[in-house]
Design a protein around this nucleic acid. Structure first.
Lengths: 190, 190, 190, 190
DNA sequence: AATGAATGAGTCTTCATTCAT
DNA sequence: AATGAATGAAGACTCATTCAT
């Protein structure tokens, strides 16, 4: 069994890893997964290309790490908000707007990369559970989660459509769409 | 100025173009836009790489053509169905299931390629209008289309989630989700 | 022995050939030999790509034809001018300015295509002879043509430098350079 | 920020770059710019195609580098020669003979690539200044450089004509042409 | 005589990734 | 831990040219 690495080195390594993830997330958010390459990510983080591969197996691995950080950030924002439904929706919306490109690529990757899909499914389940805490009357039944899932999917899609401008392009205003979501939530409550 | 080409030649050219689009659509559907290349498309259609460029300016152009064909096919299927809401939903669902990867790449491309986005917006507006014919009580107001748009977005997202298996992975059954859509439609009717 | 083609057909063929050469010359002059292709030449002349190859063996063949036309044009211009040395120089200069890109490509091709080189040499000899007519005291000796050749080379190079702006870029005015040529001519006269 | 690279590595990188330039120069000299490609250059230098692009942005960039090296070489040869006019001319001539194809392509590129033209103009100005050192009585006036420019253009063109054989093809011997240059120089001296 | 369709053989360029140090 | 150098394997796109009609 190899000796545990000295704490100092480990800390440094973790700092590097974090810098890489931050740089990657920024790249994914602004130019997209398919328009960056690992060399750019490394350089933007202040490292040489090869360093990237000391910390991540490949480009997909850092995407997953960035995804994890993204979800954590969203929940942090959500938990900092008070219960008012509309405020929550607007918080989600703001987050989606900011990370539109990232989210799109996430879905594209999920379609071809089983690992991404698995991770996404896992996070969706956590999302449902957290939602149950925020809004107990939308809590899932034992083995029928269709209510929260239906809501989350709808919110997600509507948020994206508002964020990417396609809602407006088809004459649907942000305010009206949010109103529809709120009505939907009411109708879904037990 | 050259004389108008004989009908026979033109027909041949159109046949080639069609074969290319068909081959491309199949590639996009099965391995995805980002995992094919124009050479493969041409060869799969039975032509040399250069032939591709006699018919399409670039890879994106044939994607747009495939997209157009895809939408036409969906509407053909929808119009062949009788009015029953659930049947319509299931038809959409079937179509989405079959073209899941294609649809995902479509969204990814729309995020970076303005041309794709523009085309997508245009088709969305047509979709709303056609929906108004199928279900007059969901017809859009003069400048507030939020009702049909909200519905279409929801259907789209839920269909995708069923199609890609993520609905099931988060314990939401197809049947229940469809039931939610139907309930939503009822509540949206004027 | 095949029968001579009917005169009418031949005339038509020649007209086509001429249109192709004219189109080619214009392309070579404006975008250069290396930036056109035979398809474009044919289309610009109003024909289909394949037609090109009914009239010229390849791209080089039409270049040679355009070259021939170019030289003919220059001599026509020169012979329309009266004997005044400076006027002659200015006529050459005007012609070079207009056909700068063409001339450059001519030299580039001469360096790799023996056929072009051979043709160029032949035309140079004709040029010397014609010069002898215009200016008898610059006529070549039996087998020492160095006087007119030296002059022609100098004029050619100086004209190009004026035409392409490099003379001005190195602080040498057109007027002064022409004056040098005239002085040179005087010193070369027998 | 990465530390300055160790001298050893940098030396290696520079060696690679040099090898690439040498290989490129040789290709340009023997088969010409338009008949090589960056892959061939890289392979001839002993590297993979991609390595080329770590050192040069594109084919034109390495051409410029080769051009710079070519000029440096010419001046080195010139400065190693003693002042005798004829010897200098013969040195230039030898250099032109060796790099005939390169020089031709240089001119062709200058006609279409502004960057090449700019560089060429800059070098011409340096050439004039160096000439002023070698032959003070041909030094340019403040803003009238026509004397040295006229001479350089003539020498250039005559050298090329001797080098490419067209002088001989039009019955102008090398010796006579050089004699004309010398006479010209005398007449241009202040 | 003219042409529409088709193509083989490139050519430039990119990128995830490795290796010696 | 970090890196500079290097790369194999593509992939988008071009062009002179041919052939059946």
């Amino acid at each position: 069994m190899p000796a545990a690495p000295p704490t100092k080195q480990r800390a440094k390594s973790e700092a590097t890893q974090e810098k890489l993830v931050t740089a990657a997330a920024e790249e994914f958010r602004t130019v997209g997964y398919f328009n960056t390459d690992t060399n750019k990510i490394a350089v933007h983080a202040g490292y040489a290309p090869a360093t990237f591969y000391k910390h991540f197996e490949n480009k997909l691995a850092i995407f997953l790490a960035a995804y994890e950080a993204w979800v954590a950030e969203e929940w942090r924002a959500l938990e900092a908000t008070d219960d008012d439904t509309e405020t929550l929706i607007r918080t989600v919306l703001t987050h989606h707007k900011k990370h539109l490109l990232f989210r799109t690529d996430l879905r594209a990757l999920a379609a071809t990369e089983p690992e991404v899909k698995r991770y996404q499914n896992k996070l969706r389940r956590e999302q449902v559970k957290r939602l149950a805490v925020l809004a107990p009357d939308l809590a899932p039944d034992e083995d029928d989660w269709s209510v929260p899932v239906f809501l989350l999917l709808t919110m997600e899609r509507v948020s994206d459509a508002i964020a990417d401008g396609s809602a407006r392009a088809s004459h649907a205003s942000e305010a009206k769409l949010i109103a529809h979501i709120i009505k939907l939530i009411d109708s879904l409550r037990h």
